[in-house]
Design a protein around this nucleic acid. Structure first.
Lengths: 149, 149
DNA sequence: TATTGTTATACTCTATAACTATA
DNA sequence: TATAGTTATAGAGTATAACAATA
């Protein structure tokens, strides 16, 4: 039931993101870059547990969408530092807005105290299961990939 | 958060099933066949929203595992009626047992009343979202596929 | 002609490994 | 020699369409 509701939530969220022209992994990458602009492609890739070749493709896509840009680093000319464009920042804001709407829509059948209680219970489960807050398992990780130490 | 916990639940469950040598979709197919033995491959496929060519592969796999068998239909010799073997039935029981364990493990940080409350809240959300009880979205459906009317 | 199940094929997504350009 | 990023390539997994047997 947990996974049923969770899966539904993911699906609906994915559809909302698609309306913004984004794949879930685009959103993750946008957030990572937004959190630490100027990091190198490979550094971000390691953090997101994506191999370098995948990073190339995702960054290309977001660059084509005009949301992100590669900048050259004078000190080490091999590196591409990643930055959000204005459009990228606006998109992130839109993402936040849509995500909040999504949450309200999801819990529209519950009263405020019930929502708080639900969050409390899920937090407890999450904590008990050793899940890191804010780190969404699997969004950026396909089937066969394995955890890295 | 909902989808985070849900995704985690799915992942752990998937690992438990892998210990039984099963892919999640094998489990779904086993359940469908167990629920209505003797149906044709195509009929089951339509119900699971799988194209015929995928059904061939999945049934092959479960047949190779000795959990399912195709039987010929004298009336219409094009059809293959699907049945569980004894091993298939035993496996389904094992699946039920492991799933129950999984549920207990997942909620081990909660008291009994809290678990009941969590189920109540999730049920409410599920109902409000129009989810059919017992039908797990996406387990048998990959990325690009679309709902059929 | 239509339908059941199978096989062939082409497409997408992926990770690995070769490669380039710097260091 | 090592590293950042790119490109080439091969492997899963998939859906569509051609196909054979039967109706």
């Amino acid at each position: 039931m947990m996974s049923q509701v969770g899966m539904h939530s993911s699906q609906v969220w994915r559809e909302r993101m698609a309306e913004l022209g984004l794949d879930p992994r685009h959103v993750v990458l946008l957030r990572f870059v937004g959190a630490e602009e100027g990091r190198s492609q490979l550094a971000l890739g390691r953090r997101m547990r994506l191999p370098p070749s995948r990073m190339v493709a995702f960054v290309d896509e977001l660059e084509n969408l005009g949301m992100m840009e590669r900048r050259l680093n004078r000190d080490d000319r091999r590196m591409r530092a990643l930055y959000l464009t204005d459009k990228g920042r606006q998109t992130l804001e839109a993402v936040a807005k849509v995500s909040a709407q999504h949450e309200r829509q999801l819990t529209k059948g519950l009263t405020r105290p019930e929502v708080r209680e639900l969050i409390r219970l899920l937090s407890r489960v999450s904590e008990e299961q050793g899940l890191a807050p804010g780190v969404h398992p699997g969004v950026a990780r396909p089937k066969g990939s394995k955890e890295q130490g």
